[in-house]
Computed example of a mutant assay.
Amino acid sequence: MPKSITRTYSRYTREACSLLSGLIRAARKEHKLTAQEVADRAGISRGLLQRIEKGDLKCEIGVVFEVAIIVGVKLFDTDESTLRKHIRQTEDKLALLPKSVRKKTKVVHDEF
């Protein structure tokens, strides 16, 4: 059995995850939704929802975003049309940048 990898996360990452998980839990309770109702709507187990609400950093980001949308947590401070505009701008920017980034190799001077 392979060893599990222990990851370290920055404090900012941990705090951001804690904030999002707290917002998800608060929104679920404000909308008077049970954990099982939200889990069923998201197509996940109740245990995974509990891990999301506790701020477990190993939960899949797509599932966390989906749960946030289901309970009404706004992920970005823009409406859908503005979000699409930002996506297009980012895609345009990425099209101008190189496909991959490589470190420059040192030139060897072997003239003796």
Rank of each mutant, 00 (worst) to 15 (best):
S45W: 08
I52D: 01
T82C: 06
A42H: 04
I44Y: 06
I52R: 09
D40T: 10
L83V: 00
L57N: 06
G43I: 02
K54C: 10
K74S: 12
V71R: 12
V71D: 02
T78E: 12
G47D: 11
K54P: 00
V63F: 03
E37T: 08
I61V: 13
R41E: 11
G55E: 03
C59H: 05
F65Y: 12
L83W: 13
F65W: 08
I44H: 09
I52F: 05
G62D: 09
S81F: 06
E80A: 15
A39Y: 05
R88Q: 13
E66F: 10
I69K: 15
R46S: 11
T78F: 12
D40Q: 13
I44Q: 09
D79G: 05
K54F: 04
A68F: 01
L49R: 10
Q50F: 15
S45T: 13
V38R: 09
I69L: 15
F76P: 00
T78R: 14
G62H: 09
T82P: 00
D77I: 00
L75D: 02
A42M: 04
L49Q: 08
K54M: 13
G43P: 00
I61P: 00
E80M: 12
E60A: 15
T78K: 14
V67D: 05
R41Y: 03
I44N: 08
V67P: 00
I44K: 10
R46T: 11
G55T: 01
G43T: 01
D77T: 05
S81C: 02
I44L: 07
K74N: 09
A39L: 08
K58D: 12
E60I: 06
L48C: 12
K85I: 01
R51A: 13
I69A: 15
S81M: 10
I52E: 07
G72D: 00
C59Y: 05
E66H: 14
R84S: 07
G62N: 12
D56T: 04
K58N: 15
L49E: 06
L75S: 04
I61K: 10
E60M: 10
V73N: 04
I70W: 03
E53S: 05
E80F: 12
I69T: 15
F65M: 15
I70R: 08
L57S: 07
V71Q: 04
V67F: 07
K58L: 14
I52P: 00
A39G: 02
L83E: 11
I61E: 06
A68E: 03
K54V: 02
Q50K: 15
